[in-house]
């Protein structure tokens, strides 16, 4: 194998693989206020996130008494999808705060 002399420029391969293209997705349109709205507080069942959300629920009740909240635990492990819950939130024109404890 040929060795390079000091100072000689050599070409080498970029060792990285090919990342996929990113598909940009628009976010959900926000309401102007939370008055009269239902906010789902969704726990993913990971490391005490439920306790955090319960405290958030109390704080939200004090700060925004016109806002309704619903505490829920997502189905399955923390990475598992829960289409049924998303469908329910959507049907109720809800908003969501999700806590991912750690």
């Amino acid at each position: 194998m040929r060795s390079t002399s000091k100072g000689e420029k050599i070409a080498v391969l970029d060792p990285r693989g090919s990342p996929p293209s990113i598909s940009l997705a628009p976010m959900a349109i926000r309401p102007e206020s939370l008055v009269g709205r239902l906010v789902y507080l969704v726990d993913v069942r990971f490391m005490n996130g439920d306790t955090l959300l319960r405290e958030l629920q109390k704080a939200l009740a004090r700060k925004c008494p016109d806002v309704r909240t619903e505490f829920r635990q997502k189905r399955g492990g923390y990475g598992e999808d829960d289409p049924g819950l998303w469908s329910e939130i959507r049907k109720n024109r809800g908003l969501m705060v999700m806590a991912i404890g750690h």
Binding site: K9, L13, S21, P26, M27, L95
Partner: peptide, 28 residues
């Protein structure tokens, strides 16, 4: 939950990220 979306938050489309085969030649 309530702050209006800015233009970037409304964007759709595709972003390509290429990786070159070779790096610019250089000293070892």
């Amino acid at each position: 939950l309530t702050g209006a979306l800015d233009d970037e938050e409304k964007r759709s489309g595709s972003l390509k990220r290429g990786v070159p085969r070779l790096l610019e030649p250089g000293k070892e």
